[in-house]
């Protein structure tokens, strides 16, 4: 299955949430792979804490594969996170876990202009990953990018038409982010608009899009017990407003995949949350890991992906 992660604005927590979803999937015994299509800023290596690849690999990454690096390569480099992460708790594959692979960009790589050969290469790459991985999560850069257009073209080709593709649109739970996310999905030059122009069926593509809310403050949470009654009432009002706003923009409950709560560990240090961070070190919240697990599970839950 191919999953594309997009967001209209930067700083939504798209990459960090995506990395954690891939990680939870691998822990559950599935072969999972994270593909860094954020060509302007290929920094997924730092989330997986790969030494020497924090800002992309020196050579042979995705930029080189697409002919935008120093030398063109036939296959982009694969990094086995279980053996190459600098973090002790990641470096041993737990028994029964699947493969956890990162396909990084090139260091100091940049967005590149459209190229006719890129589409062919993109199709070959996705077909190969579909053959070898149960989940292949492709992280696209924020906003309307060439990379987004490229993957929409690729998934519309006959070779990939039968492969299940799904879209996750990440947005923060604010007045500014909700309409922006809706615009990216359904607005002009958004995913559906570009997709239909590249040959996708509009209905099918719409049904393959779900939203993920990030850094959400739950007004009912016990963590807010210290707030004054007036503050809580105000939060509840805001939350209600946002729910109505989301429904108006068709980003409401039926299109929602899940929410990730606000977690200080994610805000200050973008990293994978291990069970160790929650239970042994007690720095991260149990709810955050539960949210990642929930998202990872729902990616393949047929009930969630029925037509809304």
């Amino acid at each position: 299955m191919l999953v594309f992660a997009v967001s209209d604005k930067g700083g939504t927590g798209r990459s960090i949430t995506s990395c954690n979803i891939v990680y939870r999937r691998a822990l559950a015994g599935h072969d999972a792979c994270y593909v860094d299509f954020d060509f302007g800023s290929p920094t997924a290596g730092s989330i997986f804490q790969i030494t020497g690849a924090g800002r992309g690999v020196v050579e042979g990454g995705l930029h080189s594969y697409f002919g935008a690096g120093n030398a063109i390569v036939e296959e982009p480099r694969r990094i086995n996170v279980w053996s190459e992460s600098a973090r002790g708790s990641l470096r041993r594959r737990p028994p029964g876990a699947g493969r956890l692979t990162l396909i990084p960009g090139d260091r100091d790589g940049a967005e590149f202009p459209p190229d006719p050969d890129a589409l062919d290469r993109c199709v070959r790459l996705f077909l190969r990953l579909e053959e070898e991985f149960e989940l292949c999560l492709v992280d696209l850069s924020a906003g309307r990018s060439y990379a987004t257009q490229l993957v929409l073209q690729a998934t519309a080709t006959p070779a990939l038409r039968n492969v299940v593709s799904r879209w996750l649109v990440f947005h923060r739970w604010t007045r500014q982010h909700i309409p922006a996310a809706a615009g990216l999905a359904f607005g002009r030059d958004g995913i559906v608009d570009v997709g239909v122009r590249t040959g996708h069926d509009e209905r099918r593509l719409r049904d393959a899009i779900r939203f993920v809310r990030t850094a959400v403050v739950d007004p009912g949470s016990s963590d807010l017990a210290g707030l004054r009654a007036a503050q809580i009432a105000w939060l509840l009002d805001c939350h209600q407003d946002l729910l109505e706003l989301a429904a108006r923009h068709r980003v409401g409950r039926s299109a929602l995949l899940g929410s990730v709560p606000l977690d200080p560990v994610l805000q200050w240090r973008e990293q994978l949350l291990s069970d160790d961070d929650v239970f042994a070190r007690d720095v991260a919240n149990r709810e955050t890991i539960a949210a990642f697990d929930d998202l990872a599970r729902k990616l393949t839950d047929p009930v969630v992906w029925e037509s809304p």
Partner: peptide, 16 residues
């Protein structure tokens, strides 16, 4: 693998 005669749906994934 990209032949139009195939449906590109593997019964399960296997490493090459």
């Amino acid at each position: 693998q990209q032949s139009p005669h195939l449906n590109q749906k593997s019964p399960f994934v296997a490493h090459r």
